[in-house]
């Protein structure tokens, strides 16, 4: 099959970018989208041109490195799929595709389709962990966890941190990413002691890094390659309100919290 690509090319963060037209000729329907770009790049290299920069590593949909927008959809048209796992059998011969990087204030372009997502790391650093010293943990079966909670925590923890949610959101909000981590830890008994402090810290960092507000569009959930549910955002909001109203860092709290 043949495809026509319009790819965003931008040499560096502060430089202007534009779409360039390329043709992907005689590509195979079993190729992944990235393998198709590899073929285009081999052609560019052989002609002495700079290849298209795009991020990738595992090519198995788990590391969260890859990601760009195809015809307006983060990771392309297929649901629950990262672009490295998107195969050409989902396109038609002759399709014309517009390929561009995540567009968000908090994710500046590094080059072509590659953006800087370090803001996500900073959100985790602001509390997305459980403080446990190495070697100080009790036996793993000492605290049973309801299977349903463990499963739900795993649903949230499946986030790969690719940034599609931010790219999909008209406000450039990182709410789904943040909520997934908040929910993962809040669903487990081990996450309780720092629960309120965590949500306050992470939300504050999100604001500082220039992510927009969540106005419940739901575009993030639709774009998420891991199917992370927007319900986690509701849970974050509940925790945040409770924390903002009641959290007093130096006072003992009721019950498990």
């Amino acid at each position: 099959m043949n495809l026509v690509l319009h790819v965003w090319r931008q040499a560096g963060p502060k430089l202007p970018g534009r779409f360039e037209r390329y043709e992907a000729r005689n590509v195979n329907e079993h190729m992944s989208f990235l393998e198709m770009l590899d073929v285009v790049n081999q052609g560019l290299l052989q002609a002495g041109h700079d290849p298209i920069a795009f991020e990738h590593d595992c090519r198995e949909g788990i590391c969260g490195s890859c990601g760009f927008v195809i015809n307006g959809s983060p990771h392309g048209p297929l649901g629950d799929t990262t672009v490295c796992q998107l195969h050409l059998r989902h396109f038609q011969n002759g399709d014309e595709l517009w390929i561009e990087p995540w567009r968000a204030k908090a994710f500046p372009v590094v080059k072509d389709l590659v953006v800087d997502r370090n803001a996500f790391d900073r959100i985790i650093q602001a509390g997305g962990y459980i403080s446990v010293r190495t070697g100080s943990a009790p036996d793993a079966n000492a605290i049973p966890v309801r299977k349903e909670n463990a499963e739900r925590a795993m649903d949230a923890a499946a986030c790969i941190g690719c940034g599609a949610c931010v790219a999909a959101c008209p406000n450039g909000s990182a709410m789904l990413f943040t909520a997934a981590k908040v929910a993962h830890l809040a669903l487990l008994p081990q996450g309780q002691p720092e629960r309120l402090q965590r949500v306050l810290g992470m939300v504050e960092q999100m604001d500082q890094d220039g992510f927009g507000n969540c106005t419940n569009h739901g575009a993030c959930e639709a774009a998420c390659p891991k199917g992370i549910s927007i319900d986690f955002i509701a849970q974050l909001n509940r925790d945040w309100v409770r924390a903002a109203l009641s959290y007093a860092p130096h006072e003992a709290a009721e019950g498990a919290i």
């Binding site: 459980i130 446990v132 070697g135 009790p138 966890v145 795993m154 923890a157």
Partner: peptide, 22 residues
């Protein structure tokens, strides 16, 4: 054996049985 303890304490959502154990 220490590794599993450490990971559970960190919040790693390992698969569990209905009784809540690993």
């Amino acid at each position: 054996v220490n590794i599993i303890d450490q990971c559970v304490a960190q919040g790693v959502p390992f698969a569990r049985e209905y009784g809540g154990l690993l």
